[in-house]
Nucleic acid binder design. Sequence first.
DNA 1: CCGAGAGTGTGGACGGTGTCAACATCCGCT
DNA 2: AGCGGATGTTGACACCGTCCACACTCTCGG
Lengths: 233, 233
Amino acid sequence: MTTRYHHGNLRTALVDAAVEVASEKGPDGLAVRDLARRVGVSHNAAYRHFSDRDALVEEVAQRGMQGLLAAMHARLDAVTETDPVERARCRLQELGKGYVDYALAEPGLFRVVFTAYPEPPSAAPSGSDPDDPGAAPDPYQLLGAALDDLVDVGFLHPDARPDAEMTCWSVVHGFAVLTTEGPLRAVPAPERDAALDRVLATIDRSYGATTAPRRPRDEPAMATDGPTRGASG
Amino acid sequence: MTTRYHHGNLRTALVDAAVEVASEKGPDGLAVRDLARRVGVSHNAAYRHFSDRDALVEEVAQRGMQGLLAAMHARLDAVTETDPVERARCRLQELGKGYVDYALAEPGLFRVVFTAYPEPPSAAPSGSDPDDPGAAPDPYQLLGAALDDLVDVGFLHPDARPDAEMTCWSVVHGFAVLTTEGPLRAVPAPERDAALDRVLATIDRSYGATTAPRRPRDEPAMATDGPTRGASG
DNA sequence: CCGAGAGTGTGGACGGTGTCAACATCCGCT
DNA sequence: AGCGGATGTTGACACCGTCCACACTCTCGG
């Protein structure tokens, strides 16, 4: 009874164990044989459920992505500000903080997410692939929505909207990488958190600096409200 | 003659081979046995010159760091602008571009640099350790100098100076990681380059926004120059 | 001139890994 | 009942890092 020939739910057991290991040791600490051993099954039993080691890592990455999204949503939903402009600004900040929160709380899983990141979001701008409809919604979309809000609310000038995703993602991702696995990994937490505040404030300041002035100056501001990006010509 | 028992300069030969391999396959593609094979020497001969695989990787990382610094210096030295403000602004931009240049040109070595990055620069703010005097000057110092110039020249307000290194490093590093090994790795080069320009322009705009206002408009533009939002300070 | 010892390279071994192939077992369906 | 597919096991191969004992070569002191 204790050791049945068929495990029952080996797949999820393996992924669970993999998540646990990756959480502690990162993607490089993930070994199929080790996981099989932990789960109490013989080596390469896993190959009945995963074609590759990479396939298993990919599964862990999806779990990590869920966690990342959850962290971002948690921060986002905690914003109580009512003034539209302040709210939109605050939400963007919190989005970034949620991202870094997760990277700091789960550096191993965070790394897995970005070692096995499937394909660039620009290739499929709508987010979900047709052959993978239930795919987790990218943080990219969350970010895009927050930035759109910032434009709608009148804080971010449309001229500064293009590639704003890349700016925000870059700052926040760079900060996360540098402070978790990078050269700044030993910066004490208080200084680190203060630095993140300043970093995000820098972005906020930039966006505020391009706010459309109340009375439109001689700048025609080329009213391209349509966010059609990739349609270059 | 062709095969002498003593190789002569095995150490450098190994590092050369390692740099070549790492340039193509990144740090994970680096195997001591494989390198020994390439150099035409038996396995673990390398262990007479490197205590560890990590020690060898570290050597490659130093080479990579040299390349990174060279790329940044190249961009920096190419700036011909004479107007002090414009020059300082331009130099900061070019510093970032040089960083990204190298990451895109040598993604494998770039990764090695940051998988084996010794210790945070904040621990040793002066840069060089006393027991390693000839150590390569951090890009961190280059960045700090450029930012100091920006303050001296009057473009960057001193209030925005703290942690400016982290902001700039984060954007640029994040951009590099996302576009080389990350989810944005398949963004075509022209769009990518344009995006970097916009990203850097965003930072520049932020720093300009805190400049002592040339034409102080009636709008204080929410003059909370202190980015401390929720902080109790 | 020679021999000792340090420096360097070789060969073998151990435990670890991913992955393939062949075999064993069990469950569900006919 | 029994058969087939799904699942798990055992064994093997080729890699890997690393430790060990050994072999060769060069240099230096006598």
